[in-house]
Computed example of a mutant assay.
Amino acid sequence: MGLKWYTARRVAWAGVAAFVILTVTFVLLDYAPDPELARIQFRAAATGADAETAAEAYAERRGLTGPLWERYLEYLGNLATGDWGWSDTRSQPVLTAILTALPYSLMYTVPAVALSTVLGIAIGLYSAFNQYTTTDYAATFVAFFGVSIPNFWFGIVLLLLFAVQLGWVPVLFDAELARTRPLSLANARQLVLPVFVLGTSAIASTMRYARAEALEYVRAAFVKAARAKGASEWRILTRHVLRPTLVPLSTILVGDLLGIILSASYLVEVVFGIPGLGRLSLEAIRRQDTALVLGTTLVPVLVAVLGNLLQDLAYALLDPRIDYGDR
């Protein structure tokens, strides 16, 4: 009963968090200045037409008439039925635009997350078992380097070096190649740098957390007792250090990785010219496409909320001592 009630509360809070973020985004977009409206009014005035009439026609076409709360309730109602709205700038449904862009983002984010999780934890554990050695200092340097270096600058430098100077990878991302031959070697070549740039910061963050948590158990009394009984280093690593390390690590790993991936995707896709979700969202913000902005905001929000929900449930399953607060 305790775990079920805990799960139900987490699911409810996840829904509340998604609703709040979506509401704030909708309100901010409504009050933000619209450059397209200013251009339409300027063109109308320049041609001798009435600027206010042109503005009203623009608002009618974009569905911006009526009170804010009515438009928001209508949007929520449509969202509940699977209608994410219509993108005026792309002349297509918002859901279609998102589903078209999402595969390009997944091509580099999924490998980056997988590699950063595995390598970050592995390097962190190795560094904890070899504290204050040359390898430990090297791993710490890599961690600080990955966290500190700006992704957009790092991506530009890598493009200049490996694409322009050495010619090992293409300068421009070929979206047609990625769509028609996603598993080809040619597509892998153009995804190497985005994965490396995104994975560098993610590996660094994961490594720091894993090392800090593992250090609490490397010299613990139960680990010394296991060594005294003749347990192998592999058993000590996996059973006595890794397992308890994953409990606190699970509470920060998902949220931190999602923050890095989602925020960096905007910069990575702009630098490498990838027509993914981050670039689609950025263009929607620039062109004040409200429906598309809300749609591209909703996707990472749902991913982040789901990720945090899963990390809470993982924490509850990994640590049997957790208090579910149902008393």
Rank of each mutant, 00 (worst) to 15 (best):
residue 177 L to K: 01
residue 187 N to K: 07
residue 1 M to S: 10
residue 47 T to Q: 15
residue 178 A to C: 12
residue 13 W to A: 05
residue 242 L to S: 06
residue 5 W to Y: 11
residue 115 L to N: 02
residue 86 W to N: 02
residue 202 A to C: 15
residue 259 G to I: 00
residue 96 T to P: 08
residue 4 K to Y: 05
residue 140 T to H: 03
residue 144 F to A: 05
residue 10 R to L: 03
residue 145 F to N: 02
residue 84 W to V: 05
residue 151 N to K: 12
residue 82 G to H: 09
residue 242 L to F: 12
residue 255 G to I: 02
residue 36 E to P: 09
residue 114 A to K: 08
residue 168 W to V: 10
residue 165 Q to W: 09
residue 101 A to W: 03
residue 35 P to I: 09
residue 125 L to K: 14
residue 269 E to W: 08
residue 109 T to Y: 03
residue 91 S to I: 13
residue 81 T to P: 00
residue 114 A to P: 02
residue 198 L to I: 04
residue 79 L to W: 02
residue 167 G to Q: 13
residue 107 M to K: 05
residue 181 R to D: 01
residue 8 A to W: 08
residue 189 R to V: 08
residue 149 I to P: 00
residue 76 L to T: 05
residue 31 Y to M: 11
residue 308 N to A: 04
residue 247 V to K: 01
residue 92 Q to C: 06
residue 291 A to I: 04
residue 246 L to V: 09
residue 132 Y to P: 04
residue 11 V to N: 01
residue 182 P to I: 12
residue 221 A to E: 09
residue 60 E to I: 09
residue 301 V to K: 12
residue 3 L to R: 06
residue 190 Q to Y: 00
residue 174 D to N: 07
residue 113 V to E: 01
residue 116 S to T: 07
residue 214 A to F: 03
residue 270 V to W: 07
residue 206 T to C: 00
residue 39 R to S: 14
residue 233 E to M: 09
residue 10 R to H: 00
residue 207 M to S: 11
residue 229 K to W: 15
residue 129 F to Q: 15
residue 312 D to T: 00
residue 169 V to D: 02
residue 60 E to Q: 11
residue 18 A to Q: 04
residue 100 T to F: 14
residue 283 E to L: 14
residue 105 S to W: 04
residue 262 L to Y: 04
residue 305 V to M: 01
residue 165 Q to L: 14
residue 192 V to P: 01
residue 267 L to P: 04
residue 204 A to N: 12
residue 143 A to F: 10
residue 151 N to H: 13
residue 3 L to D: 00
residue 75 Y to F: 15
residue 144 F to K: 08
residue 171 V to D: 12
residue 62 R to V: 07
residue 187 N to L: 06
residue 148 S to N: 11
residue 226 A to N: 02
residue 4 K to N: 06
residue 32 A to C: 15
residue 320 P to E: 07
residue 17 A to F: 07
residue 106 L to V: 03
residue 198 L to V: 01
residue 240 H to A: 11
residue 81 T to V: 05
residue 118 V to N: 10
residue 61 R to A: 13
residue 238 T to S: 14
residue 57 A to I: 14
residue 160 L to E: 10
residue 207 M to E: 10
residue 91 S to Q: 14
residue 34 D to L: 13
residue 115 L to M: 13
residue 117 T to I: 14
residue 297 T to Q: 10
residue 209 Y to R: 08
residue 48 G to M: 04
residue 228 A to G: 05
residue 131 Q to R: 11
residue 188 A to L: 13
residue 269 E to F: 13
residue 155 G to K: 07
residue 148 S to V: 02
residue 272 F to Y: 04
residue 97 A to N: 00
residue 190 Q to H: 07
residue 21 I to F: 13
residue 185 L to G: 00
residue 236 I to T: 15
residue 208 R to M: 13
residue 135 T to I: 12
residue 278 G to P: 09
residue 123 I to S: 03
residue 17 A to P: 02
residue 222 F to V: 11
residue 26 F to W: 11
residue 177 L to P: 03
residue 285 I to F: 14
residue 97 A to S: 12
residue 187 N to A: 02
residue 172 L to K: 12
residue 243 R to G: 05
residue 61 R to I: 05
residue 264 A to P: 03
residue 68 L to A: 10
residue 67 P to F: 08
residue 32 A to Y: 14
residue 244 P to E: 04
